[in-house]
């Protein structure tokens, strides 16, 4: 199969890659760019685990071809904060113990980031609607809602 040249900007860094037509964005991110926060859940776009931002919009990286991300800006958890300088969502998820096994959390934080970017003051109801589309099998969601609302408060006070 012919290879395709693809340019991606991931967390602010430009990459030029040769990919096969069937290569998925999640595989490019994890296996070639070593971005391991991106996790695979259902592989069919149902669980929200693999969510990354493409040009600021949450999308499922498990059902997006890398070829179709050509020229786009991709943001993952690694791109929104660092150990010495975490994003408010990363702070509140840790402080409020909003994670248990943690597998679904990167996807949830990316969707939450996109929600807060467009709505700095969401209601609990709006956060729940966002979360309704992300499966977490251990936390029960309550603390995740609190962590998102608390991060929103921190962001508004800055």
């Amino acid at each position: 199969m012919p290879r395709l040249r693809v340019r991606l900007r991931v967390n602010g860094v430009e990459h030029e890659l040769e990919v096969g037509g069937g290569e998925r964005l999640i595989d490019t991110l994890r296996n070639r760019l070593n971005i391991k926060s991106v996790k695979e859940g259902c592989s069919t776009g149902d669980c929200g685990t693999c969510t990354v931002l493409m040009d600021g919009e949450p999308i499922n990286s498990c059902i997006t071809l890398t070829a179709q991300a050509n020229g786009r800006e991709i943001t993952t958890l690694e791109g929104i904060g660092r150990p010495g300088d975490p994003h408010p969502l990363q702070i509140t998820f840790a402080e409020l113990a909003a994670t248990q096994c943690g597998y679904c959390i990167p996807g949830i934080i990316m969707a939450a980031k996109s929600l807060l970017d467009r709505n700095p003051n969401p209601s609990g109801e709006e956060v729940r609607w966002m979360l309704a589309e992300h499966l977490c099998r251990c936390t029960g969601y309550g603390r995740i809602v609190e962590a998102v609302l608390e991060a929103a408060r921190i962001l508004r006070s800055r």
Binding site: P2, G21, G22, R24, D27, S43, A67
Partner: peptide, 12 residues
């Protein structure tokens, strides 16, 4: 493991 089979793709 969960990769897709490869195919040709043309992007006009």
């Amino acid at each position: 493991m969960r990769e897709l089979p490869d195919f040709e793709i043309y992007s006009p």
